[in-house]
Each structure stands twice: as structure tokens, then as C-alpha cells.
């Protein structure tokens, strides 16, 4: 295949997956509005099928540019969307009670996929620096996907919790999962965000040590990554020690989520460090 053909193939598979996710969102939102469990099941199946062309599209990009989906905004967003969908599907396998979260997560995924396409071609094709190599680098970069996936799910559960808490009767809120289920989901996924964010930070430190003989340099993204991790730790402590369940936990989860977005998407763009060499 020529690079042009590969590019077209990538775009087709990308939009194919967006169509599946779009249909899946439609069913899940309908499921929320109408309170029909069957809609969620269809939505979940459609999302699972959509993952196939999505993975193929990411693989095609990888093939074309000879590096994983982490350097440019479009490929990073697309990989992130895949992470969120996989985390959501795993969650529904574990506890079908939380399928209602799809009503808020899947439209978010569609938005992310469309945003990814908007960024395509906005920067000239870039190649990874020589340091972007080795198993620790791969772990570092790959763990961002489940970490952010977990954060998205925890934050979605928090948003739904706040909505349902505010308008408990009638409308959509009546159909979303029960408050205790949303709260537990928020708790579990905050814990998983702590785990995957921890892997990301640790593997980054090992990678830095192997590359430059220094595991931690307090560069702004490193410092803020530690702050994000401690914020989640604080959230979990507040839950356990001071009864910050439900509403308070939901608000604090939103704060942690915003801090994670700041660390991952904003700081690399405004500070000069090795972390500025991705999300171009």
C-alpha cells in the first residue's frame, strides 16, 4: 500500500468506528431517557464492534508513521478514546449495573474521536526523538491510556451522581444507576486511576534513569504528575477517613480529573521539557 492509500484506509476505518460509537451512544442515551435495559445491551455490542475498525485504524497509523499512537494530538486522542471504551466495556462485564454510564461516556468518546480528526494534518509529520525507545518508555506511554480511561469513568460517574442527586425524580436521572452504585463506581475507578497513574509515573522514572541516569528531575510535568497522584490519594483517604462519600467525593473527583487534564494536556504545551515532545 502507498502512504496515500494507507492514509485513506486509516481515515475510513476511523470514521467507521466513529459511526459505530455514534450509534452506540444513540442507544445508550436512549436507554437512559427511556430506561430500557435492552438499549444498553445493543449500545455495548455496537461499541465493542466499533473497537475493531478503531484498532485497525490506529494500527494503520502506526504502520504508516513507524511509531505508536502517542506523538501527535490526533493519534493520542484516538488511543485515549479506545482506552475509555475498553475500560467501560470491562466495567460492564464486571458489574452490569453500571451500563447506564455509557449514556455519558460514549458521547464523550465520539467527541474525542471527532476532535482527533480535526487535529489530523495540522502539524507536519513528526518523528519521535531518539530517547522515545525501550520497554519502560512503552509502559510509560501505554499506561496513560488506562489511567485517563479510569479518570474519565470516575468523572462520568461523579457527574451522573451530582445530576441524580440534584434531580432525583423524573427525567433521565431516574434511569441512571442508583446513587450507591455510582458512588462505588467512582471509588473503584479513582483507585484504578491511582494504580495506572502510578505505573505511568514509575515507568517514566525508570525510563529517565536509564536514559539520563536521573530518575526524577522535578520538571513541571513530573511535579504536576506527582500532585495529581497525591490528589487521588487524598480523595481516597477523605473517603475512608472522613466519610467523603457521594456528593463531596464526586466534586473532589472532578477536581482531580481537572488536575490530570492540566498535567497531561496543558502543561506539556506551555513548558519546555522532554514532555513537550508529544501531543504536537
Amino acid at each position: 500500500m502507498t502512504p496515500e492509500q494507507l492514509h485513506i484506509f486509516e481515515a475510513i476505518t476511523h470514521w467507521l468506528s466513529v459511526s459505530f460509537y455514534g450509534a452506540s451512544s444513540g442507544y445508550c442515551v436512549h436507554g437512559l431517557v427511556r430506561g430500557r435495559t435492552r438499549d444498553f445491551s445493543i449500545g455495548i455490542w455496537l461499541a465493542a464492534i466499533g473497537m475493531l475498525p478503531h484498532t485497525v485504524s490506529l494500527a494503520a497509523r502506526w504502520w504508516a508513521v513507524d511509531h505508536g499512537p502517542y506523538l501527535l494530538k490526533d493519534e493520542s486522542f484516538s488511543a485515549l478514546a479506545l482506552g475509555i471504551i475498553s475500560m467501560y466495556l470491562l466495567l460492564t462485564l464486571r458489574s452490569p449495573k453500571v451500563r447506564g454510564l455509557g449514556g455519558i461516556l460514549l458521547p464523550g468518546v465520539v467527541a474525542l474521536m471527532v476532535a482527533a480528526r480535526i487535529f489530523t494534518g495540522q502539524v507536519p509529520m513528526t518523528r519521535p526523538p531518539a530517547t522515545f525507545e525501550g520497554i519502560w518508555f512503552i509502559i510509560h506511554i501505554v499506561s496513560i491510556v488506562p489511567a485517563m480511561g479510569a479518570f474519565f469513568i470516575a468523572a462520568s460517574a461523579a457527574v451522573l451522581y451530582l445530576v441524580k442527586e440534584k434531580w432525583p425524580h423524573g427525567g433521565v436521572a431516574e434511569k441512571v444507576p442508583l446513587l450507591p452504585v455510582l458512588d462505588t463506581c467512582n471509588y473503584l475507578y479513582a483507585g484504578l486511576a491511582l494504580f495506572f497513574w502510578g505505573i505511568m509515573t514509575v515507568s517514566g522514572a525508570v525510563w529517565a534513569d536509564q536514559s539520563w541516569g536521573r530518575y526524577w528531575a522535578w520538571d513541571p510535568v513530573e511535579t504536576w504528575s506527582l500532585i495529581t497522584w497525591l490528589c487521588i490519594g487524598l480523595l481516597l483517604h477523605l473517603r475512608r477517613f472522613h466519610g467523603w462519600h457521594g456528593k463531596k467525593a464526586a466534586w473532589f473527583t472532578m477536581v482531580c480529573f481537572l488536575v490530570s487534564l492540566l498535567t497531561l494536556f496543558f502543561l506539556p504545551l506551555v513548558t519546555g521539557s522532554i514532555h513537550s515532545e508529544y501531543l504536537l
Binding site: W218, P220, L230, L234, F241, H242
Partner: peptide, 27 residues
């Protein structure tokens, strides 16, 4: 005590936040 642990976590967080905002001499 739970409040000591929470206070310590908040203190460390605030100090790191300050270091994230105030320019550090060595950086």
C-alpha cells in the same frame, strides 16, 4: 490519627503545588 494523616497529605500537596507554581532556583 486520621486528621494528622489528612493534614500531612494536604501539607505535602500544598508544598508541591507551591513548587509547581513558584519558579524553582535550580530549574
Amino acid at each position: 490519627s486520621r486528621s494528622t494523616v489528612t493534614t500531612l497529605l494536604v501539607a505535602i500537596l500544598l508544598e508541591l503545588l507551591a513548587a509547581g507554581i513558584v519558579p524553582q532556583r535550580f530549574l
